[in-house]
Computed example of a mutant assay.
Amino acid sequence: MRISRTTPWAAGLAAVALIAVPATASAGQERTADPRAAATGSAAIEPYYAAAEGKTGAALKTALHDIVKTQSKVSYDGVWNALKVTDQDPANPNNVILLYSGRSQSKSTNGGGANDWNREHVWAKSHGDFGTATGPGTDLHHLRPEDVSVNSTRGNKDFDKGGSPVSEAPGSLTDSDSFEPRDAVKGDVARMLLYMAVRYDGGDGFADLELNDKVNNGSAPAMGRISVLKQWSQQDPPDAFEKRRNQVIFDSYQHNRNPFIDHPEWVASIW
Rank of each mutant, 00 (worst) to 15 (best):
Y49N: 03
W123E: 04
H255S: 08
G163K: 09
E53S: 14
S26W: 11
Q88H: 04
E146W: 01
Q88Y: 01
S42F: 14
V185N: 09
D139C: 13
N110G: 12
S149V: 04
D147Q: 07
S227F: 01
R103A: 13
V189H: 10
T138P: 04
I67P: 00
D177F: 10
V85H: 05
A197L: 09
N81Q: 11
F179T: 05
D160V: 03
G41T: 04
D66Y: 10
V267W: 04
W232K: 07
Y76F: 15
F206C: 05
V96Q: 05
L229T: 10
I226T: 10
T7G: 07
G135W: 04
G224P: 06
L98T: 02
R31S: 14
V21M: 11
S167L: 07
F260D: 01
L173Q: 07
R119D: 06
K69W: 06
S252F: 10
R2C: 06
A15Y: 03
T24Q: 01
S269W: 10
D160R: 00
I226L: 12
R2L: 09
L143S: 00
Y195K: 11
G111F: 05
R245S: 03
D89T: 09
T32H: 13
K84E: 13
R31P: 04
R199Q: 06
R154S: 09
A58F: 13
V215D: 11
A50L: 10
A23T: 15
E265L: 09
T109D: 14
S176D: 04
E30S: 08
V79F: 06
N246H: 05
G78T: 10
G224A: 10
N217K: 11
I67Q: 03
Q88R: 12
G112S: 15
D147T: 11
W266D: 00
Y49L: 03
Q247G: 08
I97C: 01
K161P: 04
Y49M: 02
